[in-house]
Design a protein around this nucleic acid. Structure first.
Lengths: 113, 113
DNA sequence: GTCCTCCAATAGTCTATCTACGGTAGGCGT
DNA sequence: ACGCCTACCGTAGATAGACTATTGGAGGAC
């Protein structure tokens, strides 16, 4: 009850892009920090749930878009830091470009002519 | 072979909005015409598959966003024409507004600061 | 010691799209 | 007459990617 109802789900297909871009901005970062960053920069509109984030990071490891390394966080806790690879950078470019292509197409339908 | 490989899937969550907006533009229209319109206006970027379109229209009937009526098409074929209801118009406004809100949030993450 | 925060991960559910069918009927060419 | 192409409707099953809910551990404050 009384939950904040103005938060939005992450549109399917955009999560990889958001994570990759966050890693470009922050450099190597752990999952928790990535989620915090996306939420803050989006003015609390985008809430990345842990059940979405960690499976996505696992898939990104397998795809070779990021590399992971265990280390101590700023708060002295055990954390896995993810670093962008060259393949991840390229993937990001493709996703951003495709994203814009599709959004422009949608806007042609939705915006008044 | 030689298929057009630059077509995109409809981003989940945007199909209702595209259909509703199409009905605002065209007035009452059948499913086939709706799909044609979206494809053309989006410059062939958005391809609405029949297996996505017809189930979506059924759900929209149930939700009361559209009403359906059988009639003869321009090509003298049997077709079901969908007409927007007041509830459908209101739903469209909400979906467009939420869409913009989320897209702006994503852009704050993705666009260079 | 207790509690809160930070941080990770998995299992299972759900929604909405896709692929792949099946089917009717009109019009055109031969 | 016949075949073929196009216009139209619809369903079943697969799939993807997000969600909820839960478990669990370790640091620091009190």
């Amino acid at each position: 009850m009384g939950k904040n109802s103005s938060r939005s789900e992450i549109p399917p297909g955009t999560l990889y892009m958001l994570i990759l871009k966050t890693l470009v901005r922050l450099g190597p970062m752990h999952g928790y920090g990535i989620a915090q960053y996306i939420q803050q920069v989006s003015d609390e509109v985008l809430q990345v749930e842990e059940g979405s984030l960690y499976p996505a990071l696992q898939r990104m490891l397998v795809k070779g878009w990021v590399e992971g390394e265990w280390a101590q966080s700023e708060n002295n806790r055990r954390a896995r830091y993810y670093r962008l690879t060259a393949a991840g950078r390229e993937q990001l470019q493709q996703e951003v470009s495709e994203f814009h292509r599709v959004m422009q197409a949608i806007n042609r339908v939705v915006e008044p002519a």
